[in-house]
């Protein structure tokens, strides 16, 4: 038996197919979900992929957050279904208030695309259990609106509760406060990050590393052993 992991396609999603491919490589079954469908096709978990849904109009993720599929995703996430938001998916999760804080334009005002070094800070979420805390990994990053912001109280809370899941190392690519690259909700089932683990799952492409694959093997193990 394997797990069924849904990947939502919004108008303007770019990395939905890469994400489906990463899920398959990890040994799970990818299920395509459509933004206009409230039905999640009985998947066990959902990934909101990267891209520029609705052209980032208004704010990145602001319009997608109100799509029919998100109604069900928000409801199910609150009752424990694992949800991963990558890049635009992370922006949608903050807009939906499933994760605290918000995302704004990079402080240098340019699009950025690079291999990014990260430290795994929390290896206990549904999506990070196959890493070890403190592990340093390289994952491609590409964004325009990647600056994570939150008020000091929220930042202190995230730090105190171990909810900073990933931190930028050596170089902060977008001005994110406290070098935050990704965070988790309190329960650990909802995780969002700016870098793209689905682009680092095969030795043949990209940086030649497979540092992103543990996201997808983590969730598979969690779901199959559940």
């Amino acid at each position: 038996m394997t797990a069924r992991i849904g990947v939502v396609t919004f108008p303007g999603s770019l990395d939905d197919r890469d994400t489906q491919r990463a899920i398959k490589l990890a040994g799970a079954e990818p299920v395509a979900l459509w933004h206009k469908d409230k039905d999640l096709k009985q998947v066990d978990a959902v990934v909101l992929p990267g891209g520029f849904s609705y052209g980032d109009y208004l704010r990145a993720g602001a319009i997608s957050r109100f799509s029919p599929v998100m109604e069900t995703v928000i409801e199910q996430a609150k009752s424990g279904m694992p949800v991963l938001g990558i890049c635009n998916g992370f922006q949608i999760l903050t807009e939906a208030h499933l994760l605290p804080g918000g995302m704004l334009g990079n402080d240098h005002l340019h699009f950025i695309c690079r291999d990014q070094k990260l430290r795994v800070e929390n290896a206990e979420t549904s999506w990070t259990a196959d890493y070890t805390a403190g592990q340093e990994i390289h994952i491609p990053l590409k964004n325009m609106d990647g600056r994570y912001v939150a008020d000091e109280r929220t930042l202190d809370m995230l730090e105190a509760e171990g909810r900073v899941a990933f931190r930028y190392l050596d170089f902060n690519p977008n001005g994110s406060l406290r070098d935050i690259a990704g965070i988790t909700n309190e329960a650990g089932n909802v995780v969002g990050l700016m870098p793209h683990p689905e682009h680092a799952v095969e030795p043949l492409i990209g940086s030649g590393r497979t540092d992103g694959l543990p996201f997808f093997t983590s969730i598979l193990k969690k779901l199959v052993n559940a």
């Binding site: 208004l58 807009e95 605290p100 804080g101 918000g102 704004l104 912001v149």
Partner: peptide, 8 residues
């Protein structure tokens, strides 16, 4: 709820 994100 929509035009502004009152978090930021």
């Amino acid at each position: 709820s929509f035009l502004a994100n009152t978090v930021i």
